[in-house]
Design a protein around this nucleic acid. Sequence first.
DNA 1: GATCGGTTGTGCACGCGTTCACAAAGCCGT
DNA 2: ACGGCTTTGTGAACGCGTGCACAACCGATC
Lengths: 232, 232
Amino acid sequence: MSPHRTRRRIPDATVARLPIYLQLLGDQLEAGVSNLSSEDLATLAGVNAAKVRKDLSYLGSYGTRGVGYEVQYLVYQIRRELGLDHDWNVVILGAGNLGQALSGYGGFTERGYPIAGIFDVDPDKVDTVVGGVRVRPLDDLAQVVAARSVSIGVIATPPAAAQDAADRLVRSGVTSILNFAPTLVTAPLGVTVRTVDMAVEMQILSYHEQRRALAASSLRSVPGDAGRNQTA
Amino acid sequence: MSPHRTRRRIPDATVARLPIYLQLLGDQLEAGVSNLSSEDLATLAGVNAAKVRKDLSYLGSYGTRGVGYEVQYLVYQIRRELGLDHDWNVVILGAGNLGQALSGYGGFTERGYPIAGIFDVDPDKVDTVVGGVRVRPLDDLAQVVAARSVSIGVIATPPAAAQDAADRLVRSGVTSILNFAPTLVTAPLGVTVRTVDMAVEMQILSYHEQRRALAASSLRSVPGDAGRNQTA
DNA sequence: GATCGGTTGTGCACGCGTTCACAAAGCCGT
DNA sequence: ACGGCTTTGTGAACGCGTGCACAACCGATC
């Protein structure tokens, strides 16, 4: 029998919020708070208290009725569930502007995602050092992935090269891909792909701007636009 | 009467996909394709054809039964709905690694989001030039926002400075904020805030890795893990 | 101008996620 | 030991988004 029973599946929406709770709980811990109610955490995260409780209940019953949650223990449980009880080596593909910024941004290593290597096809970029990491030729990818058991790859190439980069990652044995290129990237089943497209984000924003402008031009009172406005 | 009737509200999920369709349609246009069915577009976007049709139907009835959609016209309509019929000036707050990468990344200007200014509190950074833009002191923010009628601000500061940056943006008159700092940022109603947190993305990925590892360790056949695996 | 293959636009059912509301449960003071 | 106060954990209702299935419609061909 395994030490930890395989839990019931956690909804995607909850998984996306756990890192945020984790961040906030860590802050509170540093601030010397040792206990927290769902209401408190909800306020910090800018969400509903019931949602916090339901989210946390997927991890198990780690709260105390009448009291709240012990921050330290909750942090431990969330970290365990997210697989943060050990580091995850990552490789970055593409040493252009974004790739350089990512490798220079210390936040990754600090949060448990040390950079095992950064790769580029351009011979001019190979062997330059960005963010304390030497750029390697793309052909070394498989070797590095194997040697340092990398399971997460970041695509920071131009869009045209993104699918090829993904294919190489998959062939090398990477099973999780974070894609920053503004293109659809397909991978076989069993490989998780997430895309972050800044242009898409901007366009979503300008859609809302656009609507505001339209609403303002048709001079009407805003009919009940309730709902608080925060993010995380 | 206004030239364009205020449309019914478009669901968030649809708004998030329109930029992707737009991207793909643009590619097709360049490739010389002038007409496209919902099925074709769905394949390109990696989604269901019915979803494409429903998404597009929110814009109006711009397809032709038995034929499909005229790419050029559809591009025009989506651009109009997203507010892309004119440029949107943006300001970047924080000239660190990320801020520099963003301003160096030509994609913004190219896609209709020219950078009106990049700002930092650090006197050492002020007046240096990154990505062809001179870094300005934060105190100049309001003036630039007003002069160039900026409505979108990007936060690329350390987390501790993010809320202050947001407040300054709001005070200056910015109504849309894209936050790259790993913190909750609150803004008054009427201001849209979107947060992109790379650490969160990584943690979502490692959760899935973690689960795969667990599933593999409890030696079982995978019981029907259906569903295709793509993103955009 | 009637028939036929093809594609859109949408009503409907389903499923996931959010929120409410409340019973179960723990703590504390008396 | 007990009663009152507090907070969790969750059953149930609701709402949004997805996917199916099909009628309405278009263009082409005979």
